[in-house]
Design a protein around this nucleic acid. Sequence first.
DNA 1: CGCTATAGTTACCGTTCGGTACCATGTCGT
DNA 2: ACGACATGGTACCGAACGGTAACTATAGCG
Lengths: 231, 231
Amino acid sequence: MSTATGPRILVVDDEPNIVEVVSMALRYQGFEVATAANGAEAHAQVEAFRPQLLVLDVMLPDTTGFEIAERLGAQRSSIPIIFLTARDAQEDKLRGLTTGGDDYMTKPFSLEELVARIRTILRRTGQGSDESNRMVFEDLELDDDTREVLRAGQPIDLTATEYRLLRYLLSNPRRVLTRAQILDHVWEYDFGGDARVLETYISYLRKKLDAHGPGLIHTVRGVGYALRAPR
Amino acid sequence: MSTATGPRILVVDDEPNIVEVVSMALRYQGFEVATAANGAEAHAQVEAFRPQLLVLDVMLPDTTGFEIAERLGAQRSSIPIIFLTARDAQEDKLRGLTTGGDDYMTKPFSLEELVARIRTILRRTGQGSDESNRMVFEDLELDDDTREVLRAGQPIDLTATEYRLLRYLLSNPRRVLTRAQILDHVWEYDFGGDARVLETYISYLRKKLDAHGPGLIHTVRGVGYALRAPR
DNA sequence: CGCTATAGTTACCGTTCGGTACCATGTCGT
DNA sequence: ACGACATGGTACCGAACGGTAACTATAGCG
């Protein structure tokens, strides 16, 4: 049912591309999304849109994400924030903020990672769905808290990229995902490298997953990949 | 929605950041939290919120924590207080108060420490959960009263920082904790130093813990650490 | 039946990340 | 005041990771 409105998220960034990419991804995930390109718009949108979570670029044309966070004052405690910052920014400033239930990510990030963090925070603050942090498909289980992956009860060790890829596949079981979709979600949004990496990592995943059972990752030639039950 | 209400705690401090950080941490721990920024608000909240414990900054804009404590009068005996004070403040005044079942901490403190003290006091006054003061994971035991740590029955000597770190890990068994989370909880909340310290202390802990058994602290590369059963 | 495009696998290398030993500073107790 | 110990910072090493590339396998199609 498409009328079920998901949690409201406000995305604030002055780079239109980021806003575009992020908000589309979040809408597709069922969130309600509003956007703002500067501090003034952000404050207006907080009033009008009443978001349950903010995705907030630290560097904005007219202010900083920190200032916005401060000016939110009392409401602040009920609106967690995910700060976006350049890779080399001093993390100390941010670190203090994460204790408040906030979090931060360094640009460029993967959308898969962002969605995962949003889900974690909303779950923690009880505003999200009471969905488990656990994804299951056939005899494959993935627990996002412990970061444990089990195939037929057997624990499987995955690297960070392998894990992101598998989680994305698991979040869209049976659906065929195109190469472009997977690259866009699992790799950093500005990844410009060879698209062949994907095949490599699919290969890695299959090797580790199928050591304990028949193949779950199905190739759809000319299109992409899909998670399907083995026959 | 399961709003299982934990013990009610009132946090009083005029620094919004402190209130923010502390109240979020306590809420996450399952406490019900109200806040106040000055003496007037504090008194009002004691009336309205009926907290079972106060976290009370000594220096407030309109009064001092001591005065608030005094004015609470008769109710006082049933509401223990944790005073917060700057490091170099006269600790003599505070020491007298701790005998009454109260406690004090100097800023900056670690959240892990604050939560531990709150738990201790609530347990003592019988208002807390009937949770044991003992944490156990596999063959690892930690007793918060005696500050004893046992691995496979063997006592292990830990320094203060090592102990806080281990306790935080034990309070989130199996869950992967990010570097930022650990630094935020185990080190003082304004710790801005090099995050490498963490690895150093993980190393110390492993050395001491794993002298009596297989590794319990598991590295999740690119993310953080988790307490896991050895396989 | 064989050619071509697409996918899979493996190997390799540069870089990053984590572990540990070592050192400087601070704190506490005697 | 001194010594011992805890804490935090630095440096260096090794391992793991990610991405590229080269080679192999396979499917689709004329």
